[in-house]
Design a protein around this nucleic acid. Sequence first.
DNA 1: TATGAATGAGTTTTCATTCAT
DNA 2: TATGAATGAAAACTCATTCAT
Lengths: 214, 214, 214, 214
Amino acid sequence: MSTADRRAREKARRRREILAAARQEFFERGFHHPTVDDVAARAEVSKGTIYLYFESKEEILAHLLLEGLDLLLEEMEAACEPESAQSPEQALRYLANAYLRFCQENPSYFRLIMAFDRGRFEESISRKLHSKVLNQSLRGLDLLARTVERGAELGEFHAADPWQAAGSVWASLNGVLVLMAHPLRQRLLRSDLETMFQATLDLVVRGLQDGSHR
Amino acid sequence: MSTADRRAREKARRRREILAAARQEFFERGFHHPTVDDVAARAEVSKGTIYLYFESKEEILAHLLLEGLDLLLEEMEAACEPESAQSPEQALRYLANAYLRFCQENPSYFRLIMAFDRGRFEESISRKLHSKVLNQSLRGLDLLARTVERGAELGEFHAADPWQAAGSVWASLNGVLVLMAHPLRQRLLRSDLETMFQATLDLVVRGLQDGSHR
Amino acid sequence: MSTADRRAREKARRRREILAAARQEFFERGFHHPTVDDVAARAEVSKGTIYLYFESKEEILAHLLLEGLDLLLEEMEAACEPESAQSPEQALRYLANAYLRFCQENPSYFRLIMAFDRGRFEESISRKLHSKVLNQSLRGLDLLARTVERGAELGEFHAADPWQAAGSVWASLNGVLVLMAHPLRQRLLRSDLETMFQATLDLVVRGLQDGSHR
Amino acid sequence: MSTADRRAREKARRRREILAAARQEFFERGFHHPTVDDVAARAEVSKGTIYLYFESKEEILAHLLLEGLDLLLEEMEAACEPESAQSPEQALRYLANAYLRFCQENPSYFRLIMAFDRGRFEESISRKLHSKVLNQSLRGLDLLARTVERGAELGEFHAADPWQAAGSVWASLNGVLVLMAHPLRQRLLRSDLETMFQATLDLVVRGLQDGSHR
DNA sequence: TATGAATGAGTTTTCATTCAT
DNA sequence: TATGAATGAAAACTCATTCAT
């Protein structure tokens, strides 16, 4: 067993090393520029070895994406940790800000997450991995939905369908992050990501709190 | 003159034909798959001819993008046409719905517009064309901002900075369109684009109307 | 006739204009870079017109070469003009220096002449034009040979075969021009074209004057 | 070790095979005509493999050039081997004849060496390779200069600056080789390379021996 | 005579992936 | 398990020349 164990451990370590090398390459030089050779060189293994641990180049990127999602989820979960202690609005704001911080601190992961949406990814990675990514990417929405739901139960939010409302919130925040990713739009709107993000958050929170119907 | 005229007309027609062929290829097979050869074959001209009318493959895509933006802007402008006759809320809803319709009816143009954001486009098209695209892409935001401003002046919206508010609204709507572009997310949220879009629109409109501050 | 005359004159003028445009393009940007389009643009005629006046791109270059040779020959002929008035040595030195001046003042023509030697020229121009170039390029040698011959007759040079001797002289002078064309070799030999050329000229003149046989 | 050794050996062999294939292609069909595909086909490897062993097409040519220079230098060094045993004149003649033989036996290498002078070579090969070529191409001149110097010290040659004199000799011999490379000029001068070369060699040797100043 | 639109063969280089060792 | 040599499809762009008008 001990031998098998060590083998497995070493295998896992090697895999992590390759992933780390890929992360550096892709984050430093863009998602398209680095070649498998570049990654192999950085990981100090041969090109063939890469294919021993990953099916394809795209799968490596998918795994990095998964990493990013894990990190994001972790931070979002931490943000609404002592759940009961926070008001739903507070929790919503914490969640949103956790997302904002994550994007600011990990712009490359954010770009990767956004790139996943419209990419040839889906065509070129295994079905299993693809659904893994999708699942993970929905957990954030889930956290949001639960918070909205709690707010609705407490009468603080007016949302007939918490999932839908969570979708709206998520879409709005995401939209700002994408919108402000472009420096030119920051200039045009004479604003920065931080300000814009908070303004949008305020806007949707007010929308959730206001029960009036047109 | 007649000769020169006919020449110019035929040149313009040929250009349109190439653009049409490119549109078909790119919209049917994705923005990355088709080669210049494919476009040439579809347009029934030689590859060299393509380069007589367009500087590069990327410029063709940029011109398609411009087409899409023109179309979108046209529809948005039509939507708020008899400006004075509409309440700001009404105008905002019309604008938003014009955007929604456009995206539903021209999903490929929408994908192209979204794709433009993050891409090597900027590096590979002429500066002039690039700024043309940017300019056009900002006019939608401008329409929105003017509407918000009118609402603020009439006291119907509470927005200290109309441009910022317009940015929030635009970002939110855009966010929904992107979010729901993925069928899997539609399923998960047990909703469809239409519903989700209207819900988000409601949310932000309520947010604009509600003057309370937390 | 007058009409035909004018036509012919205009045709000749147009031809010269194209040649002038080609000269500028090729001399400024190298013999390989400019395209037929570039030449046409410079001459302010259409590309098709170029082919009305010249068979091919290579033929244009050949005509420029011919121009260069004409110029060179003119100067060499001027150099030994009042033939009888000069000593053969003097005449030889004048001839050589005419060549040197020509190369210094028309480095592009010189490069073109050298390029003709080893080039695909021969393959791609008409036989007639090719022999015209060859003929012309031999007239310099002829001048040299006649001077050597005169020297031999006067007993100042010792040359059993004046043509052969002229060939040697010509080859040597040419060799220096080529050798010193490269700045790196100028540096290595710690000399410049002028000095080296005169030194070589001295060397061969002494060789011609010295009747000793090993 | 054995494995690594064999690998290295095979790699070197493959490289030699590619170079041999390139040599055949380039020497048979001209330096410009063959494509990388042609070389690959001749070497019976895929096109990609070529680029595994050489950076570019130009680098292949540069390596062939280097081969040629190595060969030439070898023969020139052999020619003045038992240095002390020869008179300077003898040594000079041996050197010159070694050069002549090389050019006669390896006309393609000679053409390549001449072609290197003026060409886009310098722009398209690595700096390191380029200086390697330059270095090698100067060693011939160096041998000549040392011989002339010895002759000057012994009083047999009159050369104030041995390097300059060597330059003159080298230029002259080179000039003949270039001049006579063209069959048409051989015909015109009613001479052949061999005769012309010896005549020119005689001329410059006499020039070196004669100390008179005009 | 002049135009200029159209052609399309031609060429280098890249790189994900495979597979013999 | 690891290597790294080999593959070969792919793809954008150029430009001399032709020819209908």
